[in-house]
Design a protein around this nucleic acid. Structure first.
Ligand SMILES: [Zn+2]
Length: 404
DNA sequence: TATGCCGGGTG
DNA sequence: CACCCGGCATA
């Protein structure tokens, strides 16, 4: 694919975003996960937490206290230990991140006298996944902006799909261009996060399995295989026994422990007990009479004509009797990603956020709308036999005969 | 380049 | 509505 780069360069009026939105929720009845997700996100501007996004063990570190007071640790789920999904960066609090075994950038220089394990950890968490580099030390209240944002697009035609580009900023500011984000702050991030999430775990993160994970943390120190169930525990272990043993002050190496433990977790199941995972969604039995014949010569029409007759007039509403195709009809919303964009992987975890952006981009494009390679009327019959195309095709609409 | 099709126009 | 087409995204 030599010229694959080109297209990216020009995003026309129909931005990827637009496209995405448009087909992600045509019918009112269809409850899209994306939908929910979006809603939730917005409705809970105050809490970075949204149920599905709950990364247990995640702690959020509120920063930017004007009065010097600059920290608050907020843990989502006290009991679970799962850590690391994606960095939920800045939904309302400037930064929130998930902890995992990952590199961390020592930032806990904000010496806090009494270093509670928790607090300390919070700090680390913060630094661990530094969202796109900027310290985000600015951003005072952070509440107001979000507020307006949320209310603005809560419903509206676009199915409240979490408003990627932050309402106020012109679309341009949010262009996927790599360098774009020069100085942008939260808005883009939020979008990223969401998208990341969705991309990462196929389907728009409805409600992430929360406690479906059993995690433990194992010490990676050379000959130590200590395994603890809590991150705090493991950190403490590392710090005390391996790092600056004895001295409990983080003086020695702020949060070096992060390097020495790894998270081990087994996922049970319950990826999405929601049951609507779009994976093995097999085609209901494509109406096309005989698109199958290999080497479909243009003689195909003969048979199809019949079918054509009835179906033709319903452009946009295929004849196939079963109307309850709601869940199967790909046309409804999510064309069940035939190929890419189906991480499905429960095992994946994101660690580096900085990369996230780019990564996201790619994933995004992958997911966007994979044009099915299925031949459509046009290609099947050829332009010269246009009269044989389904109406939709003739109208240059989405083909109804060979829906993929 | 060809194809698929969205968005919008026209009668 | 049916019908068409500009123009974009993508392969
Ligand atoms: Zn067709």
């Amino acid at each position: 694919m030599p010229q694959d780069m080109l297209p990216k360069a020009r995003l026309g009026k129909r931005s990827p975003l637009g496209a995405l939105l448009s087909f992600s929720c045509p019918a009112p009845g269809t409850h899209l996960d994306a939908h929910e997700a979006g809603i939730t996100m917005e409705t809970a501007p105050g809490h970075q937490t949204t149920k599905f996004k709950g990364h247990p063990a995640m702690k959020v570190y509120f920063e930017g206290g004007a009065a010097g007071e600059s920290s608050g640790v907020d843990r989502l789920d006290s009991s679970q230990k799962e850590a690391s999904f994606l960095p939920v960066s800045s939904v309302s609090p400037p930064c929130s991140r998930s902890v995992s075994s990952s590199i961390n950038v020592p930032s806990s220089q904000r010496s806090r006298t009494d270093v509670d394990m928790d607090e300390l950890m919070a700090a680390m968490v913060l630094s661990t996944l530094s969202c796109s580099g900027h310290s985000s030390a600015h951003q005072e209240a952070a509440a107001p902006p979000m507020d307006t944002g949320s209310s603005e697009h809560s419903d509206d035609g676009s199915c409240g799909y979490w408003s990627i580009g932050h309402p106020h900023s012109s679309p341009g500011s949010f262009s996927p261009k790599a360098d774009s984000d020069s100085d942008q702050v939260t808005p883009p991030d939020e979008g990223l996060v969401m998208e990341l999430n969705e991309v990462l775990f196929d389907e728009p993160a409805p409600r992430r399995r929360r406690n479906s994970v059993k995690a433990s943390y194992r010490c990676l120190w050379p000959s130590c295989a200590k395994e603890l169930t809590t991150m705090v525990g493991i950190k403490r272990h590392i710090r005390t026994t391996h790092l600056c043993r004895g001295g409990e002050h983080e003086r020695c190496s702020p949060s070096e422990e992060d390097f020495y433990y790894t998270e081990v977790n087994q996922w049970e199941q319950a990826l999405t007990q929601h049951g609507r995972s779009p994976s093995p969604l097999s085609p209901p039995s494509p109406p096309p009479p005989s698109p199958s014949p290999p080497t479909l010569s243009r003689s195909a029409p003969s048979i199809s004509s019949l079918w054509q007759v009835q179906s033709e007039h319903s452009y946009q509403a295929p004849p196939p009797s079963n109307d309850a195709t709601a869940l199967t009809t790909p046309a409804s919303c999510w064309t069940p990603p035939p190929t890419a964009c189906q991480p499905q992987s429960v095992a994946v975890r994101v660690r580096s956020v900085s990369v996230g952006e780019h990564w996201l981009q790619h994933q995004g494009s992958l997911c966007r709308k994979i044009r099915s390679e299925a031949k459509k009327c046009r290609k099947v019959y050829g332009i010269e036999h246009r009269e044989q195309w389904c109406t939709a095709c003739r109208w240059k609409k989405a083909c109804q005969r060979f829906l993929d």
